[in-house]
Design a protein around this nucleic acid. Sequence first.
DNA 1: TATAATTACGAAATCGGTTTCGTAATTATA
DNA 2: TATAATTACGAAACCGATTTCGTAATTATA
Lengths: 349, 349
Amino acid sequence: MKKLTIKEFARAINMSVSTVSKALRDSHEISSSTKQKVVAMAEELQYHPNPYASSLRRKKSKTIAVILPEVADSFFSLAINGIQAVAEQKGYHVLIYLSHDKYQNEKAFIDDCGSGRVDGVLISVSQETVSASHLRQLQSGNVPVVFFDRSLSGFETASVETNDFECGYIAAQHLLQNGCRNISMLSISGCLSICQKRTDGFLAALEEAISKDETISGSITELGDKHEMAMQQIADVLQNSNSPDGIVASAESVAIQVYLATSKLGVAIPQQLKVVAFSTLETAEILNPSLTTITQPAFDIGKTAAEILFKAIEKPQFTLADEHIILPSRLVKRQSSTGMVFAEMTLSM
Amino acid sequence: MKKLTIKEFARAINMSVSTVSKALRDSHEISSSTKQKVVAMAEELQYHPNPYASSLRRKKSKTIAVILPEVADSFFSLAINGIQAVAEQKGYHVLIYLSHDKYQNEKAFIDDCGSGRVDGVLISVSQETVSASHLRQLQSGNVPVVFFDRSLSGFETASVETNDFECGYIAAQHLLQNGCRNISMLSISGCLSICQKRTDGFLAALEEAISKDETISGSITELGDKHEMAMQQIADVLQNSNSPDGIVASAESVAIQVYLATSKLGVAIPQQLKVVAFSTLETAEILNPSLTTITQPAFDIGKTAAEILFKAIEKPQFTLADEHIILPSRLVKRQSSTGMVFAEMTLSM
DNA sequence: TATAATTACGAAATCGGTTTCGTAATTATA
DNA sequence: TATAATTACGAAACCGATTTCGTAATTATA
């Protein structure tokens, strides 16, 4: 079966091209009886309007772009689900671009998005991104942009994030309350706003604690991009002469590496080292030992960001810069930081 | 800055529209000096050709669709990475659709893909999908389709899968070799070809074992769609009068549920129950206890499927039906099935 | 009943590129 | 030097829909 154009289809059902087009778009100019006929015949003859011809004429693509660093991370997987749920309900299509945390990739995608390919962009910026010039370009082309999770200061648009500072604070405080005296933050990159905030929160709690008890100490380590390098850095921290008795892992990948490192080095969690991780890992509960997490509302972050984006798409005068949503994460206490071994766990070991 | 059309841009640089178009597409009709000028000015004036006008005329969308059940699963996350890597290198865009394992969703996406929106489709079919009529429609519209991971019998096109039958066999055999006498397969859906094959392999190993030793037994349970229902079914299996001493979990989600259930019920892995799971879980190594997995080459499955799809897109006479790639999974033995507790693990506990 | 307003539809312009085809200028061949 | 071939570019048709605008038929108002 060859593809039908509107012209061929109109001829086949003995109507004019414009009547068909209007009928399918539910125009008030067409009587309902004619509409029904057209819709029925379109179904029967399998006529699907060419979306690009339509996009060209209407200057709407019914498509949004999602630009994010990776999709391997469970956070981003969940966020995509949230975005997709909203897009699907709105009848929009979703293009996915992975920057792999490289600015050049991100810029190339953004530039392409300025061509009219998409009606809006959701972005979680790469680790390398410091300037917002590529985004400004988009904005001046009237393509709305919404940040989710990782935003960029110095660029005014909507953002949906979690309470990173507060959570950094809570994580540190939690470790201290559970008896840690020397806590360390393992962060993935200083450039990222979220890591900076988490670190700032961590520091705030640490300083507060030190002001009350001078025997408490702490440190911050920024891990390299490369997997092996990060692994080595973690090992160094753990084997240091004043190695920490508590660690805050600023990302899921860091937490996994810490677990692997402690296992290799024979450091016992939680006896020798307590761990809290920023993570949405589904398996946190069943890790060895179960992992205390700061769990982000990943799905809702994606969903909310998409909802805001659609508001801007549907109402061009909508001022994105006013929307700054904070969806709180929550601390889920488990064995890795509390040392508590639950009854049923004991039985099973 | 308003969006530039090719007409405006051509006038601005004092050339004809066709010269500009040809220059940007690197036509042999245009001298290299003119090309350079045009490209430089396009960069300077930020002229981006409208992709939809181009698609309309050229009848190419430079876009592929990926239709899959979920992206929460780590298998699909990795597969998307593989697909994206190939697409990006080819200069293609990737539309993602999540069927949530519902046939109706899948069909709606596929129907839309037949409109010329995409040049090709990669699909991992939903659990509910039994008929291939929606795919046939696509095929007759000359949109190439490639299955990855989950395929559909009765529809002739390329597929990239893993050795499911063999792995089902290996998983069962591994449990038996490690002393299990009553093994159970927990499968997510009988309709799925991959689960069927895994189950068939499991059965083959089981029957072979029984023929040598009649005291060996086994069973198969098909879990419901709903999370709570599956959880209850797993609990039932574990509390049954002749509950198994070995379990093969046919999917990542099942493995997680088994771990949670055993923890609740106080069943000790691996002492009372040995577990093998089909999974690409990054955290398998650090679970409590570490999980023996049949690990699929998820990234490569996505990558290979995309490569085959592009062959068909670039060469329409390419016969997809001849391509049936099997990328083997491998058994990664860990504590959950062997009972071995490694030295460093002991230290850390 | 005559006129105005409304309804239902069709012809043609349009969206922004690409491509065919024609032509002037240049280079190669006889 | 005359003719053929090649090169470099421009005018206009075209892709397949949408939308404006015009018109005939119908209904409402005076």
